[in-house]
């Protein structure tokens, strides 16, 4: 039942937040959260990520999976779709770039509805594509912006990027466009799992958990920037101390920061074991990264056992005299 799954996921995220919040105020747990958790999360992330990628890399992919979304390369007078059904490596790179940067396959998303009759009707549904694109690009911007806590001196490109993100110069600290965009996009991505019966039926606890976790992350971040400010200089001190492997966090840093930090760590450690692993998986999906050249080049399954064949020529050799005696035609006299 979907509401139950959503509820459990929500409670899990609240539990993480509560543990972090009260842990930050407990002398015994605070160093655990600040000094050990980030490294543990990073190690789990890197190890889990490698494990997945290596397992995928070592899986044999003997055949091309064309998943035709366009005309295959055929006769010269038939126009082939080079990006949706590439026959060359360059084309496959192009398809991958379109997928990773523009979410091409989500752009094809359609909605099916049962109308009067009953009669099924399909329509375009671009909102999933739009929200996903808005979310992922905002996430990338926000991730890179956070580098200002980890790098000293802060590089110029980073300052330029933050300036671009804060283009409208609303208030102080300036409003970042991506903060608003990512929040709205996440709200839409969550809402569509609730209001569309078909999507609701398909939604799993893991889907809701990832969304609630990201929402919690975004909300605590927004709260720390625009209302309950934390002492950023000390946060940066902590972030820099993490980069030189001697973490220490000032007692002045508020528990809210710990909630944010714990959300990040949980997310990082959770990625390799969840759907969020599409971060690495998208590059290794055979339907996206292989050129459809099955008609040009022969792909032989590497683990095919040797097949014992008996050709016609051999058969004719074996029965030549009998065939001739019966007056039947021979290929080779």
């Amino acid at each position: 039942m979907s509401p139950l799954r959503a509820g459990i996921a929500f409670l899990l995220v609240v539990l993480v937040a509560a543990l972090a919040y009260f842990g930050a105020e407990t002398a015994a747990v605070r160093p655990l959260l600040a000094d050990i958790l980030p490294y543990a999360a990073l190690v789990i992330f890197l190890a889990g990520f490698s494990f997945k990628v290596i397992r995928w890399a070592w899986s044999p992919v003997p055949f091309r999976i064309p998943t035709t979304c366009g005309q295959q390369k055929s006769l010269p007078w038939i126009k082939a779709n080079r990006l949706d059904n590439p026959s060359t490596k360059t084309g496959a790179w192009g398809r991958m770039a379109l997928e990773v940067l523009c979410f091409r396959s989500l752009f094809r998303n359609t909605r099916a509805e049962l109308r009067e009759g009953p009669r099924i009707a399909y329509s375009e549904d671009k909102f999933l594509w739009l929200a996903a694109l808005a979310f992922h690009w905002s996430l990338l911007f926000i991730l890179l912006r956070h580098l200002r806590f980890f790098l000293l001196p802060v590089p110029h490109w980073l300052l330029g990027m933050s300036a671009l993100d804060g283009f409208f110069q609303v208030g102080a600290p300036g409003l970042y466009i991506t903060d608003g965009v990512i929040f709205l996009a996440l709200l839409y991505l969550l809402a569509r799992r609730f209001w569309d019966a078909q999507v609701r039926y398909l939604s799993l606890l893991a889907d809701y958990f990832a969304l609630f976790l990201l929402l919690g992350l975004v909300l605590t971040g927004i709260q720390m920037r625009y209302s309950d400010r934390v002492d950023l200089e000390r946060v940066k001190e902590f972030a820099l101390s993490l980069t030189v492997l001697s973490p220490h966090i000032s007692a002045a840093v508020a528990p809210l920061f710990f909630v944010h930090l714990t959300f990040v760590c949980v997310l990082l450690a959770y990625i390799p074991f969840s759907k969020l692993m599409h971060l690495g998986g998208v590059f290794l999906s055979p339907t996206r990264n292989l050129a459809n050249n099955s008609r040009i080049q022969r792909h032989i399954n590497p683990w095919n056992p040797p097949v014992k064949v008996h050709t016609y020529a051999e058969w004719e050799d074996e029965f030549r005299e009998k065939i001739r005696a019966a007056g039947l035609p021979l290929e080779k006299e």
């Binding site: 990073l42 992330f45 890197l46 990520f49 490698s50 990628v53 290596i54 890399a57 070592w58 580098l147 980890f150 790098l151 000293l152 972030a239 820099l240 993490l242 980069t243 030189v244 492997l245 690495g280 590059f283 290794l284």
Partner: peptide, 22 residues
Amino acid sequence: KIGILAVLLGFFILVTFPLWHS
């Protein structure tokens, strides 16, 4: 496979970039 491992290594370096930077 070597190509994939090389990209994976590049990703590791990118993720841990703040450490190298410091």
